[in-house]
Amino acid sequence: MIQLAEDSNVGGPGAADQGNGHSDTMAGRTIHVRVLRQDGPGGESYWERHAVPYEPNMNVISVLQRIAERARAEDGRQVAPVAWDCSCLEEVCGSCTMLVNGRTRMACSALVDRLLEEHPGEIELRPMSKFPVVRDLKVDRGRLFRALERVEAWVPVDGSYDHGPGPRISPEEQEDAYPLSTCMSCGCCLEACPQYTKIEVVQREGESAEEFERRRTAAYDRGFVGAHAISQAVLFNGHPTGRMIADERLQALTSAGGIQVCGNAQNCVAVCPKHIPLTRSIARAGRAATVWAIKRLFDR
């Protein structure tokens, strides 16, 4: 543990980390990390080993920070720092999703001590497999955000001018909606979903950025929307104003790549770092789609 410096101030050397049982036994030891790297889109991926001195209470982010600082592989070769996404480091921004020891999770809340318990000796880091790799552990999750557009995940307000408060909402409704609204678009549910498969569109020779984007969006739109988007559709279809375009959302959910692609493996809910009741959302969306489809059949 770090000793308290004489004139320490906040958060500096004086404010050391919360200790844990491992610190004594692990002190002076090295963590071995195996990273699946890829220099760019479409490139070959390769494994690289890194060694990082153990510190108490480390998470995968701090391991990657040490790797960036060392910029050397375990064999001493100088290598470029591993690229990865992160921002808040407290599991609310959804940036740092990756495969840690083979499972999708947030790197910030993946604590080294637990990982070593789970798999002694080594930590394995891989990029998400359902999204195109940009570089190393950084992937392009544009399709995930596109899905939010597909299901029109917003409240269709008239505008931002003052119209008084929003609709009255019971505490039960709020408690129902709030968990769904904590979805941070991390993509864990999609990564673990056996029905969600990778779509990687490569820009063609001579194709303009706009054309490429259009083609890519079209490809995304044929693919599965995913649990997160279904859950957002359910969230907004439950909101008194949001449900004014419920039919449009159900239309989206029942078109190609919609809710019917779900295979009920329920991995989404098992890996969701925010414990969002995704399968409840899927079932609710299923119910709404059933009713809507039957209604449409008879109202035609």
């Binding site: 119209h163 929003g166 609204s181 909101h239």
Partner: peptide, 22 residues
Amino acid sequence: PRIIDLMDRLGVPFNRTPEGFR
């Protein structure tokens, strides 16, 4: 007050009182 009202209209799930107010 206008800003809270606006955010309320945009669907922010503010915690509620038993009567349904923020």
